[in-house]
Design a protein around this nucleic acid. Structure first.
Length: 534
RNA sequence: GGGCCCGUAGCUCAGCAAGGCAGAGCAUCGGACUUUUAAUCCGAGGGUCACGGGUUCAAUUCCCGCCGGGCCCGCCA
């Protein structure tokens, strides 16, 4: 009954404790507990890839909070072959299908290779979130030979590997083919080769470049028959085996994974244990992120929801909140959810700083912990100013282009979010930036046609002639009321009408000052147009 | 064929990996205030937590089953 709260009370703390217990039972060295994430480099990284990192890093943080050293290894799968040209990239890349992504030129011309371009996009987003990692890449690993011992063991036990694969997923392939893909020395492709013999004396694998069918599409091989030295870096293990090799060689103790590779992980666990004699790392399986249409967010499909897109509208912490608040469960996510996560982070911040009370201690600790994880354990010392996202987006939309900052400053002071003489700090500017992007892209003022009655038209005509005489805000404000009343229109209704014409919404900022900032003549023109259009 | 997730207020969902109060936002309705300002403030209604069993002093939460919706894998990675 008496429940002691573990760490910060989150799932990550519990998992970390479980890992420690397991490692202690296994009697393994705890001086540096490594977690790992794999990062794909064959397409634009989507937010799900960042989720993998966020969750593994949260475990690393939790382990550190418990007093252990821990390190996140970001392992870049840059020897994977290109299977499909991602949407939005030139068709000319088709000629590189089957090539390791690290040997394909960067179509953007800014990195050493296609693979490096893609993986750097994800690494940049990790930096943005202040996720610390030790970067490694497959090409580097195979070249420097850190996996050689494991590769040898796996190839020498290829028959057993084949049996495990068959037992787990009923796939026959590796009963005959070695779980190793040489890069064809003649055509440069990797998945087209079939490795059939390993000579432990020379470390050489014999292969035939016979081609491979992927998703119904055949990638042609060149029929070259050759040999490759496994220590040369000119080939790689199949995923069914490579994880295990990595885990052992790098001494990995935790790796989270998406359910799409659950089978591979299960197979690798067995290979790791039964063939490499190494207890596989602890695991946690998470669900895929779905886009709002319910389809898996895929690296090669169009309209990829990338971390970079998120950062346009929301903070890194809000993205981490999305990733960390729940571990299980399929998540549907779209750009439209960003404001909600921004607001939720503000609520968490209120809880963290005790501004908002939570009755249950367990609940309180968990939410405080979640907040700290979102800030990768470096939360701000003082709470920020919490301007609701929607309000900012709304104000940003309403603001006259020429004097946006003045307008926002005044409104935020009026609404008491800012003190009388307070000016924007970097935090508020950031929020304004997010909200402005939002309103520009998703809430554009529509040129909706407003239907006017004869009476409306008359009132507006009256307003036009009065406006031309007005010079100050209060006078304009009063004039609007007077005209509404003199035309037998309820002020509320009349205001709503004017907002519709001028802003395309039913409400907005105090009209007097707004009309002045917009420019009297502009307003008059706009009103005239609305009458003419009816 | 194998596996996973979801089902909670009219809507969107939180709560479930640590069993102990049925929750939030929006919407609806009522009231107050109003020279409009994501108007604001106060209040109300709304639930078989999909369904059936089990464990338990106690189950939305854990276990088994079942129905419905969705996803992943079954090439490669």
């Amino acid at each position: 009954m008496s429940q002691k709260i573990i760490g910060h009370g989150t799932w990550y703390d519990m998992m970390a404790q479980r890992i420690i217990e397991r490692e202690k039972q296994l009697n393994r060295d705890l001086s540096n507990i490594k977690t790992e994430m794999g990062l794909g480099a064959s397409g634009f990284p989507h937010i799900g890839s960042l989720g993998d990192a966020a969750r593994s890093y949260a475990i690393t943080l939790a382990l550190r909070e418990m007093g252990f050293n821990s390190e996140l290894i970001a392992f870049c799968d840059d020897k994977d072959g290109l299977r499909k040209v991602p949407h939005g990239l030139p068709k000319s890349l088709n000629k590189y299908l089957g090539f390791p992504v690290s040997s394909i030129p960067d179509p953007f011309g800014c990195h050493d290779s296609y693979g490096q371009h893609m993986s750097s996009l994800l690494l940049e987003s990790l930096d943005e979130c202040q996720i610390e990692y030790t970067s490694m890449s497959a090409s580097q690993a195979y070249k420097t030979g850190i996996l050689t011992k494991e590769i040898r063991t796996i190839l020498l036990n290829a028959r057993r590997v084949g049996e495990i694969v068959k037992e787990e997923v009923e796939q026959d392939r590796y009963m005959e083919v070695l779980p190793y893909f040489p890069i064809c020395e003649q055509c440069g492709r990797i998945y087209t080769t079939k490795a059939f013999e390993f000579d432990p004396k020379t470390n050489k694998v014999s292969y035939l470049c016979e081609g491979l069918e992927i998703r119904g599409k055949k990638i042609q091989g060149c029929n070259h028959a050759g040999q490759v030295d496994i220590t040369s870096g000119k080939g790689k293990l199949s995923w069914k085996g490579e994880f295990a090799a990595r885990w052992k060689a790098l001494d990995i103790r935790f790796e989270a994974f998406g359910k799409d590779i659950a089978d591979s992980v299960r197979i690798n666990d067995r290979i790791c244990k039964e063939i490499l004699n190494f207890e596989p790392p602890s695991h946690a399986q998470y669900e895929m992120f779905l886009d709002k249409g319910g389809k898996k967010i895929s690296k090669s499909a169009g309209n990829v929801f990338t971390p970079q897109i998120w950062f346009k509208y929301g903070s890194p912490q809000s993205l981490l909140l999305l990733m960390l608040k729940r571990f299980t469960g399929t998540r549907s996510v779209g750009i439209a959810d960003i404001p909600a996560y921004m607001n939720e982070l503000d609520i968490l911040e209120d809880i963290y700083f005790g501004k908002k009370k939570i009755a249950l201690e367990k609940e309180l600790e968990k939410l405080r912990g979640l907040y700290e994880y979102c800030w990768v354990m470096n939360p701000p010392e003082t709470p920020g100013i919490h301007i609701p996202y929607n309000l900012l987006a709304f104000l940003a939309k309403m603001a006259p282009k020429e004097s946006k900052d003045d307008f926002l400053l005044k409104k935020l002071r009026d609404y008491k979010y800012l003190q009388k003489n307070q000016i924007f700090d970097s935090e508020i500017l950031r929020r304004i930036d997010y909200a402005s992007h939002w309103s520009q892209n998703f809430d554009e003022i529509k040129e909706s046609k407003v239907t006017l009655t004869q009476n409306d038209k008359k009132a507006i005509t009256d307003l036009i002639s009065s406006l031309e005489k007005c010079k100050d805000a209060d006078k304009i404000q009063n004039t609007i009321f007077k005209i509404a009343k003199s035309n037998n229109i309820k002020p509320t209704i009349f205001f709503r009408l004017l907002y519709s014409i001028l802003l395309g919404t039913t409400h907005g900022p105090r009209l007097g000052p707004y009309i002045l900032t917009m420019g009297l003549q502009n307003v008059v023109n706009s009103l005239k147009r609305s009458i003419d259009n009816n």
